[in-house]
Amino acid sequence: MYLINAHLRAPEIEGRLAPPGGRMSAREIRRLLLMLAEPEEGLEHVYGEDHADGVDLGLFIRRPTLDAAESAAARLCARCLDGVPGLAGWSLAGCGTDLVLALARFKASGGQACQRPAIAAR
């Protein structure tokens, strides 16, 4: 199984990004991807997070090779963007295992993106 990162960029309205409250959420996009996935694409799970400029996704895809997993993720995201009227104007800004995207989000979050709550000692 491979984790493929994808970034969907929100549309611009009059040169500005649409405000988060006025656009589709990561939760809704996650649900759509799960519904649209074809069995041969091997989608097992999707994680989504809203950001000021769009939505970051983590697609867990079971395919025999990394190339096949990246291709399946890109096809699925493109199909969702092309076929869902509520995503008109959105674009696929990146899709793959590129750590640059993950590290940029980590840096932008001040190191909080990967923080988990401490587990209380028993």
Rank of each mutant, 00 (worst) to 15 (best):
W90A: 08
D98N: 04
T65H: 08
G96H: 03
P19F: 02
L99T: 02
S109C: 13
L87I: 11
M1W: 11
W90M: 07
S25D: 01
A10F: 12
G22D: 12
D53S: 12
D98P: 00
D98M: 03
Y47P: 08
A26M: 07
A72C: 01
I4L: 12
R105G: 02
T65N: 06
L43C: 00
R62C: 09
L66I: 01
R23Y: 06
I119Q: 10
A10H: 09
L17K: 07
V55S: 04
T97Y: 04
R63K: 03
A88C: 03
G42F: 02
L92T: 09
L36E: 10
L57A: 13
A69S: 13
P39M: 11
D50C: 07
E49D: 14
R122K: 11
T65W: 10
N5F: 02
C114Q: 06
E12Y: 06
R23W: 02
G83C: 14
H51M: 04
A68V: 02
L43H: 06
C80Q: 00
R16F: 06
H7I: 08
S25N: 07
L101S: 00
E44Q: 14
L101D: 00
F60W: 12
L59P: 02
L76P: 02
F60E: 08
L32S: 14
L36A: 14
L32G: 14
D67M: 03
L101M: 06
R116W: 09
G58Y: 10
P19S: 13
E44H: 09
P85E: 00
D50F: 03
E49Q: 15
A113P: 00
W90P: 09
F60Q: 09
E40S: 13
S91P: 00
G48Q: 05
A18W: 05
H51T: 11
F106P: 00
R62L: 11
A104T: 08
P39I: 15
S25E: 05
G15D: 04
A74T: 13
G94W: 01
R30H: 09
L34P: 04
H45M: 07
L103R: 03
A102N: 01
R122Y: 13
G21T: 13
A78L: 14
A10T: 14
A72K: 00
L17I: 12
A6N: 09
R30Q: 10
R30A: 11
M24G: 01
F106W: 09
D56R: 10
